[in-house]
């Protein structure tokens, strides 16, 4: 029997994994988003509104919230086409802060006072979603769509020249990512049974990016490793007392120095595949 402490940590891992996957999907097109906590917040508030106020069952509420957030993602995705690289990253940062600021003033759902009344979900439920979406991403990774995503990332002009619809690909990635982040938010709300705008800050967006980069940004499974690391590492540094986060920061830099491509990468997978066939 797993201790409830580890069960709690694993629930956090599952939610962080979904958030990290949402960053991973956008990153696959060569774009960095620093505002996915915004989509997570939209998902958290919308799902909670549906289950608490409207009495919608959770699974349906999550699907609706994901669809709505995905639509917002697509709407955000179009103007985002004008921006590249770090400029897009900064625009998404602004978006995330705007969403947080919006919920802070959204008195209908508690404003700064937060929102209550959700029913607690089991660890199994969180991980059913997390595993399903991880699987979906893994299937996508072996599909034609992913090749197209990567083509857009590697050289957008060339991708357009060979007839790829780069607009649909990039906007679609934004929409899909926004939907995944919204599910993370809905699950977060129903795991903690209380939400407040501060839960969806820039720090949370950065955590998602951190999980992807530490775990490995070239394979979806990297997000899983990164999420595990980010949740477990601070817990295992408790013996350092007052210096816990300084050492955490140091380890973070050290890990980037040792493996800037992240813990998992494609060559690692190929290495195992080679071993298996030999």
């Amino acid at each position: 029997m797993m201790s409830t402490y580890y069960a709690g940590l694993l629930a956090d891992v599952g939610i962080l994994l979904l958030g990290a996957l949402s960053v991973y999907i956008i990153l696959a097109t060569g774009q960095l988003s620093l505002g996915n906590a915004g989509f997570m917040g939209i998902g958290a508030y919308l799902t909670s509104y549906l289950t608490v106020t409207m009495g919608v069952p959770l699974t349906l509420a999550l699907v609706i919230a994901a669809a709505a957030s995905g639509a917002i993602g697509v709407i955000i995705g179009f103007p985002a086409l004008r921006l590249r690289g770090i400029y897009l990253a900064m625009a998404t940062l602004g978006f995330g802060e705007m969403v947080r600021s919006f919920f802070l003033n959204f008195d209908a759902m508690g404003g700064a006072g937060g929102f209550h009344g959700m029913r607690h979900v089991s660890l199994g439920y969180i991980w059913t979603w997390a595993a399903a979406i991880l699987l979906l991403v893994a299937i996508l990774e072996h599909s034609q769509i992913w090749l197209e995503l990567r083509a857009v990332r590697d050289d957008e002009t060339a991708a357009a020249l060979v007839g790829l619809d780069t607009t649909t690909i990039k906007v679609g990635a934004f929409g899909f990512a926004a939907a995944v982040a919204a599910i993370a938010g809905g699950l977060f709300a129903h795991h903690h049974v209380y939400i407040e705008p501060g839960n969806f800050s820039f720090e949370r967006s950065i955590d998602f990016v951190l999980a992807v980069i530490l775990g490995g940004s070239t394979v979806g499974a990297g997000a899983l490793v990164g999420a595990l690391l980010l949740v477990m590492l601070p817990e295992h540094l408790r013996f350092l007392a007052d210096w816990r986060f300084a050492v955490f920061g140091g380890l973070l830099i050290a890990m980037l120095l040792v493996r800037r491509q992240g813990i998992l990468d494609r060559s690692l997978f190929r290495f195992f595949e080679f071993r298996r066939s030999a």
Partner: peptide, 9 residues
């Protein structure tokens, strides 16, 4: 302080 739940309430 609008960001602090207690203070805002």
């Amino acid at each position: 302080d609008a960001k602090d739940a207690t203070a805002a309430t």
